[in-house]
Simulated scan of single mutants.
Amino acid sequence: MRVKKFQAATMPEAMKKVRTELGTDAVILNSKVKKSGGFLGLFKKDITEVIAAIDPSDEHQTKHETKPVERNEEPVSPLNPNLEIMEELKNLRSLIQNRKEAYPEKLEMAYQFLLGQEISEDVAGKTIERLLEKGGSLDDLAEVENLLRLELYESMKQKKFGKPAYDKKFIHLVGPTGVGKTTTLAKLAADAALNHQLKVGFITTDTYRIAAIDQLKTYAKILDIPLEVAYSMEDYKKAKDRFQDFDLVLVDTAGRNFRDPSFIHELQKMIDFDEESDNFLVLGLTSKFADMSEILEQFNDIPIHQLIFTKADETARKGNAVNMVLTHDVGVAYLTDGQNVPDDIKTASAMGLAREIMEGFANERSS
């Protein structure tokens, strides 16, 4: 096994280095955020550190292929790689043992509960450690539940949650295929037209699937909202001109495999992501955190203002939503939990998400 430590300013940057150096089959052994740099103990910055490993048989490099080591990476020693591997594994075991010894019984139960909600080890550990630092009564399960709920809320409350007003004229929904962008677009349109009395228009650039256009046409007919189909940037600009006097224009985009950067460039050629727009990345809550992170990373060249999570009704675990918020410093606009238009959508909030994560903790652990 080849083990290597990577450091970067953010988790997406660290993951990019892992994939570049070790390939897509690499396994993440550990990740943490630590302080680095500074002057005389001041002005230190957060650095994300990731320890990754790969079986040599999985690497897609030839024996003689070498890559330059970046300044902030710590490579495995070429003189004795086995010693380096054993040292890293020893450190990981030590971290796990020390953590278990440090947590009181009720907090250890809370830590395991957070992991069961698919909160990452890094986020869960930091949350528990902040509770330990603050002190207070940690012997009662109900009190621990309340404190954890508040701690999760406090950690997320500075992020941009919810979308109480349609303050931008254009809303673009982007994201992978199958996450429910078109249905979500119809829910937003119904809310804007029926509850806020706004004059709404539809534009779709999803010309790859006839079914997608037909679906949006059906919604447009039911809601009495005009629809323009754009096959090019020129068509898109013409549609924008047609809707010049409208209050809100909702734009549907094609769901593609956004792990391929060419699709991002294709999207940029099709749509004008200007300052008049809110751009929402739509992700399914049933997806893996690593996959969500990779998709968000691919959108570095397109300003993503907030996330929309769909399929909340298809999973009892909302931890990946918290992981995305705290790991990538991004807010959440909406959560959807079904196919009904316009009912199955709700405005996201930091407290609401914290409540859903901690719901049932005390009852489950006391029974």
Rank of each mutant, 00 (worst) to 15 (best):
T184K: 00
K63F: 11
G125F: 01
N195Q: 12
E228C: 00
L248N: 03
Q268S: 10
S232R: 01
K5S: 00
R242K: 13
A316F: 02
Q215L: 08
V330I: 14
T207I: 14
G180I: 06
A165K: 12
S232K: 00
E65Q: 14
S262F: 00
A333D: 00
K44V: 02
I28W: 09
T62P: 07
P164L: 07
S367Y: 14
D329C: 00
M86L: 12
K311L: 04
L148G: 04
K238E: 15
N279R: 09
S36L: 03
S232I: 00
A165P: 03
E49V: 13
A124I: 02
T20R: 14
E234I: 01
N320L: 09
K44M: 09
L353F: 09
K160R: 06
K160F: 02
Q112D: 06
E133F: 02
E21D: 07
D214M: 03
D278I: 02
L216C: 07
E133Q: 12
Q117F: 04
E84D: 13
H60N: 15
I171N: 08
P68D: 13
K44I: 03
T184S: 11
N72S: 13
N72G: 04
S77H: 07
D224Y: 01
L267H: 08
E129H: 13
D214C: 03
A290I: 05
P75R: 03
F202T: 04
V3E: 05
D344F: 01
P75F: 01
L248K: 02
N72Y: 10
T20N: 11
L185I: 11
G360N: 14
K159L: 10
Q339V: 04
M358E: 15
G352T: 12
G201Y: 12
Y103I: 05
V33R: 10
